[in-house]
Amino acid sequence: MKTIKDINTGTTPQPLTDEKLEIAGGLWQDTFKRLKKNKIAVFGAIIIGILFFCAIFAPFLAPHDPENGLLKDRQQPPSEKYLLGTDSQGRDVLSRIIHGAGISVQIGVISVGIALLIGTTLGVLSGYYGRWIDVGIMRLVDIMLAFPTILLALAIVTVLGPSLKNAMIAVGIVNIPRFARIVRASVLSVKETEYVEASKAIGCTDMQIIFRHVLPNCLAPIIVQATLTIGTAILEAAGLSFLGLGAQPPMPEWGAMLADSRGYLRQAPWSVMYPGLAIMLTVLGFNLLGDGLRDALDPRLKE
């Protein structure tokens, strides 16, 4: 709710009064109400809540050191001491998963942030100004879409060099087209509304029209897309880490954990299974919440 107000008043900053916040945006209140009724979406939100909780409080929650294990305790099956067992170097799998949550959240937020920022800019330029700008940007986006995402990400990381930071950049770049297209589509439809025409008639500049009138009314699909993309971004980054191009050892990144332990699938299945489960649940959580948001924001499904 607050972010919407921020964008609305972006061009002409003004203090928010409490009264305004109280009544702000019937749409968002309705959305929240509908979202609460959707049990599956709530389940997704709970998973994401747990993920964020782990990410923030990892040092307090993790029972053991995530990066240095006891070699004598290596490949221990789940027990009271090691709830989810240990990996080939004696590191506690649970502690590594808890610490990995923070890394996954970072990957999700930063790479989607990159995609969102660049994608939205391109989408707005393309949708609002049209003509050759539109043609130019959309053909560029088409070229990017023609590559399989993981292949393109691989190519980018290869150029930049393998590291977690570069993996995030690569995943961000790979997801630009999705945002560009979705933003362009909603800008195109909002641009034709009478209130945008009205804003022109009352002497708004292009920037004012975009930030005050067009973008705030395109938020719904952007939010849904961002939520869904966080899930895939985490998956893609885990994929890169699995291939050794993302997080470097001994970082407790989930994809890297899978890669480290895959050789011991027979001896220590828990060291592969649990990081995999963590990835799956996280992606599932974001997808469920994203789907729920999409339904809740769709006015046709009202009542």
């Binding site: 609305n8 009478e194 209130y195 025409e197 008639a201 005050r212 009138h213």
Partner: peptide
């Protein structure tokens, strides 16, 4: 200035 036909479409739903 202009006054539009459709009062439902001519006001930005996100502004007070």
């Amino acid at each position: 200035q202009i006054i539009f036909q459709d009062p439902y479409a001519s006001l930005n739903p996100r502004l007070t």
